[in-house]
C-alpha cells in the first residue's frame, strides 16, 4: 500500500486542562482535495497548528511522506513541503505584495547570509530567480497589477489571495487553507472555488481546507472530515456528510 502524503496518528493536543484535539487520526493522500469542518472551537485550527509545528502535539505522531514532523520547527516543516494560510490574515502588512510572495519563495534559497552581506553574484542570480518565481505566482493568482502595493492597503479578498500566493511560492506539496472564503462575497468565493480546483488540477498541489461556507466545502471538496470537540465524528464524500445525522446534530443543523 502507498503511504499517504499526510498522516496523523492518535494526535492529542492538550492545553492545561483543555483537550483541543483528542486522539485524532486522519490521512490525506497525494492529489486529494479534503475539507475539514466542524463547529467553532472544535479544534480545526489547532490541527493546522499542530501539523505546521506551531504547537507540538501532546501525544501521537504526524507523518508527512512517511517522515515524522513532531519536534520540527515550523520553518523546517515548510521546507519539507507544507504551506498554509491563516484564518485571521497574517500578511507582512508593511511590505508590498511582491515582497510578501518573495518571502514565501525564500524558503528555497541556497545562498548564505554572509554572501548576501557582500552581494555576491550568486545572490544576485538567486534574487532574480526567487523574484521570477514570486511573479509567476502573482500571475497565476491575477495579482500582478498590485505587485508593488503595500499589503495592508489591499481589500480583504485580495489579501486572502496574496496569502495563498505566498503559501504557493514556498513550493508546497500540501497546502493548508484556513477559512479561505471567510469574508468573501458569493462572487469572490465562486472565484476561489475555481482557483482551488485549478491549484490541484493544474499544479498538483494537495489541499486540506477549513471552511464554514458549506457551498465552498460541498462544491469543491472530494472528501470531508468533521471535527467536534477535538474528535473526528464523520468522514466521507460531501453528500454522505450532508446527510449524516451526527454531523447535522453537531454542526449543520436541520436542513431548512
Amino acid at each position: 500500500m502507498k503511504t499517504p502524503l499526510l498522516q496523523l496518528q492518535q494526535v492529542t493536543m492538550r492545553f492545561g486542562g483543555l483537550i483541543a484535539v483528542r486522539s485524532l487520526s486522519l490521512e490525506v493522500d497525494a492529489g486529494e482535495l479534503v475539507g475539514l469542518i466542524g463547529p467553532n472551537g472544535a479544534g480545526k485550527t489547532t490541527v493546522f497548528n499542530v501539523i505546521t509545528g506551531i504547537y507540538r502535539p501532546t501525544e501521537g505522531d504526524i507523518r508527512f511522506q512517511g517522515r515524522s514532523l513532531v519536534g520540527l520547527k515550523p520553518h523546517q516543516i515548510t521546507r519539507l513541503g507544507i504551506a498554509r494560510t491563516f484564518q485571521n490574515i497574517r500578511l507582512f502588512r508593511g511590505l508590498t505584495v511582491l515582497e510578501n510572495v518573495r518571502i514565501g519563495a525564500f524558503v528555497r534559497h541556497r545562498t548564505r547570509l554572509w554572501q548576501a552581506a557582500l552581494r555576491f553574484k550568486a545572490v544576485e542570480k538567486e534574487d532574480a530567480e526567487l523574484e521570477a518565481r514570486a511573479r509567476h505566482w502573482l500571475e497565476v493568482l491575477e495579482l500582478s497589477a498590485v505587485a508593488d502595493v503595500r499589503a495592508s492597503a489591499l481589500p480583504y479578498g485580495l489579501q486572502r489571495r496574496v496569502e495563498i500566493a505566498r503559501a504557493l511560492a514556498t513550493h508546497p506539496q500540501l497546502i493548508l487553507l484556513d477559512e479561505p472564503a471567510a469574508g468573501m462575497n458569493p462572487n469572490e468565493s465562486e472565484e476561489l472555488m475555481h482557483l482551488i480546483r485549478r491549484l490541484r488540477d493544474e499544479f498538483g498541489v494537495t489541499i486540506l481546507l477549513i471552511e464554514h461556507d458549506m457551498r465552498v466545502v460541498m462544491g469543491v471538496c472530494e472528501r470531508v472530515l468533521v471535527l467536534d470537540y477535538g474528535e473526528l465524528i464523520a468522514e466521507g464524500p460531501p453528500e454522505a456528510i450532508r446527510n449524516d445525522p451526527r454531523v447535522i446534530e453537531a454542526y449543520l443543523g436541520e436542513p431548512v
Binding site: T52, L91, R119
Partner: peptide
C-alpha cells in the same frame, strides 16, 4: 537589497507568519 533582507523584515512584520513561511 537581497531576499535575505526580506527575511529580516518578515521577522519584524510578523514573526509567526515568517516562521511558517519558512524563515
Amino acid at each position: 537589497k537581497s531576499t535575505h533582507g526580506l527575511a529580516f523584515l518578515s521577522v519584524r512584520e510578523d514573526e509567526t507568519a515568517a516562521e511558517v513561511m519558512g524563515v
